[in-house]
């Protein structure tokens, strides 16, 4: 019994989903003159309400696939909603000719696009950031619903 209880605790930590999720880095090209971004401004960019950066370039926000846990954490943190819960909003935007953020297949695809495309902005795990991009904002995702 003295062994069982600690063993159970260890199993819980190993098998249950980690409640502490690693930070996400909001990234843009190193040549972008912008060095920081507020959380509220990020939200407007990803709602396609803010269309241009301070240089007059069109923002190209990037996202990951709907089923990607990183995307889901990002969506919960920014909007307090899962991606599928925003579908009504994007249906209305589609009716007005506005599309959701471009969906990239992977974090590496986000890195390649952001580093080579003016005005693009994306999010990846902080540990994936390299010298191709710079970090505008670090956000700590909310736990999954």
């Amino acid at each position: 019994m003295r062994i069982v209880y600690p063993l159970l605790v260890v199993m819980l930590f190993v098998w249950l989903p980690a409640r502490a999720i690693e930070p996400l880095a909001v990234i843009t090209a190193t040549a972008n003159p912008l060095d920081t971004l507020s959380f509220d401004d990020l939200k407007l960019i990803y709602l396609r309400k803010s269309q241009m950066d301070s240089e007059g370039n069109r923002w190209i926000p990037l996202s990951l696939p709907v089923t990607d846990p990183i995307r889901r954490n990002f969506s919960l943190t920014l909007f307090s909603m899962l991606p599928e819960e925003q579908q009504d909003y994007w249906n209305i935007q589609y009716f007005n000719g506005i599309t959701p953020p471009k969906v990239m297949a992977s974090e590496e695809a986000v890195l390649r696009f952001v580093s080579s495309t003016t005005g693009s902005i994306g999010y990846i795990r902080k540990q994936k950031v390299d010298n191709r991009v710079k970090v505008l904002l670090l956000i700590t995702p909310s736990a999954d619903k």
Binding site: N91, Y94, M104, F113
Partner: peptide
């Protein structure tokens, strides 16, 4: 090459 998935048709999002 499918680096981005936006070229595909999606119901409710039209065809890019």
């Amino acid at each position: 090459a499918a680096e981005d998935t936006d070229s595909a048709y999606r119901l409710g999002s039209g065809y890019a």
